[in-house]
Amino acid sequence: MSEFITALTDHAFLRTALLAGLLASIGCGVIGTYVVVKRIAFLAGGIAHSVLGGMGAALYFGFDPLLGALIAALVSALIIGGVRLAWSAQEDTLVGALWAIGMAVGILFIAKTPGYSTDLMSYLFGNILLVPQRDLWLMAGLDLALVLTVALFYRQFLAVSFDEEFARLRGVPVTFFYLLLLCLVAVTVVLLIQVVGLILVIALLTLPAAVAGHYVHSLGGMMVIATLLGIGFTSGGLALSYTPDLPAGPTIILLAGAVYVASAVLSGLLTRRRARRLAQRPVPAAMPAVGGILGPAGPNP
């Protein structure tokens, strides 16, 4: 660990990597909270994987792959959202199909791109150590867009996540906000691809928020805690991977996964202990009224 801290002062690329992790964590904390409470992890997975289509196309036509990823993520978010709204009965089949089709398109484009061969692994599994400085600005811009949108429409997103039918009755344009939420998920996916790659994105999108959900019971609280956990996971994973020279992406995910499992066990134990203590408590305050009625009839003299 101390070796990592020394390296941090020596190497600019490590500081960039740390900053990239921090910027990605804001997205994963804020939007990951919605993914967890609205239970759209599968949709988010579909969006993440079909992004490869856009990255491949961008590479083939000579654009910035990250720009291609952003466009592909937004398009696939709208398609997946449209599919869910129009054919909700076959949602899982259709999302699964888009998931695979997007990847297939991407791999064909990459295969036909002249001179290309090495970067596929870093798209799939990310490489936080190779994030270029200028991408940090793009990531910061995307974070700002995410946080501003959520802050402006916090009530609407909360209502649409909690109870779509009631939100519709209160005049909230539910379809619009649902699709907007999926677009925010798409933007977050692009943020996280830099760090852990598109296959592992889904873990960072769900695990920090899920751990936060074990302990706090408000959406805003979950967002803050999940962001802090995300920073902990990315920085911690980066530090752990440095000395044994492991790939950073999988190390980050394994750290997040381990913390999630430990937290699930711990919060399960805490809940059970609280329930046991409640059961052992003497008669609660509301009960004496019943006791008063039963009292005279109870112990027969």
């Binding site: 609407q156 209502a159 909690f162 109870d163 209160r170 408000s218």
Partner: peptide, 14 residues
């Protein structure tokens, strides 16, 4: 869902 009663009722003000 991580939400308080007050927050739920507030949605009626949308």
């Amino acid at each position: 869902f991580p939400i308080s009663v007050e927050q739920v009722v507030l949605m009626g003000r949308l």
